[in-house]
Design a protein around this nucleic acid. Sequence first.
DNA 1: AAATAGAATTAGAATTATTCTAATTAATTA
DNA 2: TAATTAATTAGAATAATTCTAATTCTATTT
Lengths: 143, 143
Amino acid sequence: MKNEVTAQEIANHPKVKGLRMTRQRTEVYRVLMGHRDHPTAGEVFERAKQNMPSISLATVYNCLEALVQHGAVRQVNFERESSRYCPNLSEHGHFHDETSGKIIDIPLKKGAALSDLLELPKGAQIDNLEITLRGRVLQSKAL
Amino acid sequence: MKNEVTAQEIANHPKVKGLRMTRQRTEVYRVLMGHRDHPTAGEVFERAKQNMPSISLATVYNCLEALVQHGAVRQVNFERESSRYCPNLSEHGHFHDETSGKIIDIPLKKGAALSDLLELPKGAQIDNLEITLRGRVLQSKAL
DNA sequence: AAATAGAATTAGAATTATTCTAATTAATTA
DNA sequence: TAATTAATTAGAATAATTCTAATTCTATTT
């Protein structure tokens, strides 16, 4: 195993407390915590297979679903592309840079409230918020 | 034809200026302008067939794509569900009410800027913004 | 430690929204 | 009106995801 982080450490992570951490779920969670990009299920599958060649794609989907349900991981959707998964649980949006193809987490400014921006319906209780931006980062010599 | 709005009126709509308005595109656009809910391509197909039984689903997809490209219509995605289409071009988010299943347009407060809420990367040029909310509207006797 | 029960994993089939293909038809231009 | 170009169509193809049913784990109880 080339991984720096042990299975024990992953399984004891506070975010997965209460979730039965099987070998596969541990591996999937480790993959997500490892590269903090936003892999698709297929990409998670490819990475997980390096440590655990027997893992199946269906299991990766199952593990991701369990982690999302449990609130340990966020599922992010860009248009009709494959879902992507993100272990950053702080409130944030996603910027999809069309030049580099990279997805960047965009933190919400602290102190800022959604209701400052949006005319929310009276009595609305928000369970889930997704803010996705698409565009490009202009390369300026000055920066 | 039971429709209040004529094909002529639809084809002359300023939003579609410059787009070749075939019979099918006109019909698809009329469907969207008619019920201002957020139908899927399949739902648009069902509605369009009532006026134009010969229209095909592939054409509905093609027409919707043309209208989206042209900026006459917005394509909205909720998680991994089918895309939905919306003729409201003003900047707005979408609230998906889990109780009623309805999708409600949420206007951006005027004067409010996205950068008030988000820590945007330096030099970022935003081509597209999607804000989607999921939740429920609490029924209060007081309201 | 063995038996049990319930849950997770697996391979592969099924599903479903969407896109593609190739032929036909319609719209625009000359 | 003929020629040209673009749009429409039916049906096949694609791809992400979910489902199914059998197997294997894991945790718990003897």
